[in-house]
Structure formats: structure tokens, C-alpha cells
């Protein structure tokens, strides 16, 4: 799985960090998403997909490669 974040679209909601804290973090200064792992392990797949689904800015894309 490949994960990408579109930083300019991120609205700093923190939804992704609540769901998949091992894959996403937020910058301390403005809460903008930080991608910790762009090819996370299998056990993270479900959480990453859920993050992409609920991200209120559609800023997370997941591709199965």
C-alpha cells in the first residue's frame, strides 16, 4: 500500500491521527498532517483506509501497489 497526503488541502482536523497514529502525525505549529509512513505494514491498512475515507479535506490517497 502506498499512502500520499496532499498537504495544501489538509485542514488540520486531526481525524487521521486519531484513527492511525502510527501512520499520520500533525505539525505542532499548525496541525497540518505529517505522513510518518508512506508504505505502512498490513496491520495498518484498515486504519489508513478509514483515515482516507473520513479525512474532511480528501487529502489522503491510498493506492494498492
Amino acid at each position: 500500500m502506498q499512502v500520499e497526503v496532499d498537504v495544501p488541502k489538509c485542514v488540520a482536523s486531526g481525524q487521521c491521527v486519531l484513527i492511525a497514529p502510527d501512520v499520520f502525525d500533525q505539525r505542532d505549529e499548525d496541525g497540518i498532517v505529517v505522513l510518518l509512513d508512506d508504505s505502512p505494514p498490513v496491520e495498518q491498512y484498515a486504519a489508513v483506509r478509514e483515515s482516507a475515507l473520513v479525512c474532511p479535506a480528501a487529502a489522503i490517497t491510498v493506492s494498492e501497489r
Binding site: 486519531l18 500533525q26 505539525r27 505542532d28 505549529e29
Partner: peptide
Amino acid sequence: AGPKVLRGWR
């Protein structure tokens, strides 16, 4: 507010 502060309150 910083993200950690917000998460704590949430």
C-alpha cells in the same frame, strides 16, 4: 491551538 492540546480536550 496545537494539535496535541486539541486531542487532549477531545
